[in-house]
């Protein structure tokens, strides 16, 4: 049996969790077993419908006494108690903030190794696996011997597949929690005012790096972005210079974007930047240096000064719109 933490927002499973289930099913199949899902909170009806084809035999809906928001240790304790009952070969979660945190607690509380951000697993007595390191710019080949195998699954690397299995059997579960397991919970939620198009949702992202030269010249990027409904992002260099807020940063320690088109202007193409934009369908680089690494990774390049090229693009669009 493979126990899989399925995260959802009000009954809508996260894409990342559905991707994780692709690997969970593979492991279960190789083990000759089935996948049991674990979900927390409300939204049961919607969730089972949405998991119709996910290949789950059972879905445990966990309710926690006196806790109605995210609580990492209580989640970990719930998975542990379910594991005690079902003796799984592996415990999986998507490599989200929550997934990695909950699995880390399970590892720490039970003295088990935890392998973060797995890409593939070959099942046997010992699992032979591949996982991401350096935010996705390196792959590690490794072996895992413990039981159960506790693993998170890398984000946006695996396809979401339909297992055509029919809806899972739903079972309610209420774990017994100690006081300590109640201790860390989300006490409240504060909404943030999102303005404009977010980096992760935008169809086109225009990124500026050190080559932009100062905070003011990002206006040129903003102007073009506004005209075409794009979002403006940046490299870490531009954030470190204080030209842009960290929210705009794309990369290993910033946002992961997947637009139809990424226009990278004055950005050299460091691996830590590129892992944040590798989901982009197309890449256009604007750079004065023909040797810049980003040129090798781009579909198109303009080998010129972004301070001239970007306003010229804006002007050309206005001209065509005027026609």
């Amino acid at each position: 049996m493979v126990l899989a933490l399925v995260e959802h927002v009000e009954g809508e499973p996260l894409e990342e969790s559905l991707q994780m289930l692709t690997l969970a099913r593979e492991i279960a199949e190789a083990e000759g077993e089935s996948v049991h899902g674990v979900a927390f909170g409300d939204g049961v009806d919607g969730l089972t419908d949405r998991l119709e084809d996910a290949g789950l035999e059972v879905l445990y809906m966990v309710s926690l006494d006196g806790i109605d928001r995210y609580a990492p240790i209580a989640w970990a304790a719930s998975l542990e108690q379910l594991a005690d009952e079902t003796d799984p070969a592996a415990v999986l979660a998507a490599g989200t903030d929550r997934g990695n945190e909950v699995l880390a607690h399970i590892g720490a509380r039970n003295d088990l190794p935890v392998v973060a951000n797995c890409l593939s697993v070959e099942v046997g007595e010992t699992y032979t696996l591949e996982r991401q390191r350096w935010g996705g710019s390196l792959i590690e080949h490794a072996r895992l011997r413990a039981g159960p195998k506790v693993m998170s699954v890398a984000l946006h690397e695996l396809p979401i597949e339909s297992a055509g299995s029919g809806a899972p059997t739903v079972e309610s579960f209420t774990p017994e929690l100690t006081e300590v397991e109640h201790l860390v919970t989300v006490d409240r939620f504060e909404e943030s005012e999102e303005e404009g198009i977010s980096l992760t949702d935008a169809n086109v992202v225009i990124g500026g790096g050190r080559g932009v030269g100062n905070a003011e010249d990002f206006d040129k990027l903003e102007e073009l972005a506004e005209l075409i409904g794009a979002a403006v992002g940046s490299s870490r260099a531009a954030v470190n210079e204080g030209w842009r807020p960290h929210d705009d940063q794309i990369g290993q320690t910033g946002a992961k974007i997947s637009p139809e088109l990424y226009i990278a202007a004055g950005i050299s193409g460091a691996v830590q930047h590129m892992v944040g934009c590798k989901g982009s369908k197309h890449l256009l680089a604007i750079n004065t240096d023909p040797e810049a690494g980003i040129i090798q990774k781009a579909n198109w390049a303009v080998l010129g000064d972004l301070h001239e090229v970007i306003p010229a693009i804006t002007e050309e669009i206005r001209r065509r719109q005027g026609e």
């Binding site: 190794p113 032979t128 390191r133 390196l138 792959i139 590690e140 080949h141 490794a142 072996r143 895992l144």
Partner: peptide, 12 residues
């Protein structure tokens, strides 16, 4: 910990 063991790294 011998239960987890790196075999090697790879540049994708």
């Amino acid at each position: 910990d011998e239960r987890f063991e790196m075999v090697e790294l790879e540049v994708p």
